[in-house]
Amino acid sequence: MSDVSKPLESEDAARAWIGEAFAPTPDQWEKLDRFVAKLVAENDRQNLIAASTIPTMWVRHIADSAQLLSFDTRDGDGLWIDLGSGAGLPGLVIAILSSRPMLLVESRKRRCDFLRTVAAELGLANVEVVEAPLERIEIRPGATISARAFAPLDKLLDLSARFSTESTRWLLPKGRNAVKELALLPQPWQRMFHVEQSRTDAESQILVGSGKIAAKQRGKR
């Protein structure tokens, strides 16, 4: 686990950290602000995020999503697959801050409508939204696979294994249960991952891994 400074505690601190870590252009800052406004407005129509987190939106959702990009700074055009993208967290935040092609996987129609609308209105040509359960999506090699509150870890890896390659980077926020969930995996899977401390919550952790989840590993301890 890497050493991380004191977690971000204010909206100003979250914005400052994003500025230092990613040096967003004025256009990217504008898109982040517009995304936040659209997310808050849409939350009145469908429950995308907990209403109690709106006052700390930049810490709880924007910086929390952006930090995943700091764990995969590889250049290139490799596909980033965001599973259960929901409100576009982290997918839309990453798509704003980088030029990586982004595949947002979401099975709920209203959420997909929101994701498509935001991507179109913000001019995010690098975003594609797929409206289907993960099991029904055709295989595409993922350079990066992220998932924020998508499924228990063993199920998540089992469902997404076919999208992984030998060079896939896994970025999986798992809150305070990261170590416990990791310990329940088959040993070959455990060895692929390490735990990173979240920059936004002292009690939350992120599982960062590399490699292909092989079918022959399933069920082996």
Rank of each mutant, 00 (worst) to 15 (best):
R136W: 10
K180S: 10
V93G: 00
R199S: 06
L97A: 06
L69C: 11
N126S: 15
F114Y: 12
T53E: 13
S99R: 12
W189I: 07
D12L: 09
L159F: 14
L68A: 02
M57S: 09
S10W: 06
P173K: 03
N47S: 15
V4H: 09
L79P: 02
G211D: 12
N47C: 07
I145K: 04
V179Q: 15
W170K: 03
I137C: 12
P141S: 14
S98T: 11
D3R: 11
V93E: 00
P133L: 12
D64W: 03
A51H: 12
I96S: 01
Q28A: 07
D154Q: 14
K155E: 11
W17F: 09
V59N: 04
P101D: 03
W58N: 05
S99C: 04
D158G: 10
L159P: 00
E181W: 03
S99K: 13
L207T: 10
L157W: 06
K212F: 04
V59E: 07
E9V: 07
E131Y: 05
D154W: 02
G88I: 01
V40A: 05
A149W: 02
D12S: 13
E181F: 01
A161M: 10
P152W: 09
L172R: 00
G219N: 10
G76H: 09
T200G: 05
S65H: 06
A87F: 01
S10E: 10
K31C: 02
M57R: 10
L156G: 02
K174E: 04
L182Y: 03
G88T: 06
R108T: 12
A66I: 09
F193H: 03
F35K: 01
S198E: 08
E196S: 09
E203H: 15
R60K: 15
A120F: 08
M192D: 01
Q205P: 00
L171K: 00
V105E: 00
L134I: 15
L32C: 05
D3Q: 13
G175K: 01
L171F: 02
L104I: 04
Q217S: 14
S107I: 08
P133A: 12
Q46C: 09
R148C: 07
P90W: 02
L115C: 05
A37H: 11
A215S: 15
A143L: 07
L207C: 10
D77F: 01
A149Y: 07
N47T: 09
E131K: 08
L207P: 05
T117M: 14
L68R: 04
L92P: 00
G19V: 03
I94T: 07
E42R: 11
L157K: 08
A149S: 10
R162P: 10
V195W: 05
P90L: 03
R100A: 03
G211C: 12
R140F: 10
R191P: 02
T144F: 00
T144N: 01
L97I: 08
A120L: 14
E196V: 07
G84Y: 07
R162H: 12
V129S: 09
L207S: 05
R60S: 08
N126L: 09
I62L: 14
I213A: 13
R74M: 09
E135R: 13
V208F: 11
T144Q: 04
M192F: 06
L103T: 00
E42F: 13
A215L: 14
Q28P: 05
F193P: 02
R162S: 09
E128V: 13
N43F: 11
A51I: 06
W17S: 08
L92K: 01
G211T: 11
L68E: 06
P101T: 00
P26S: 03
N177K: 14
L184F: 06
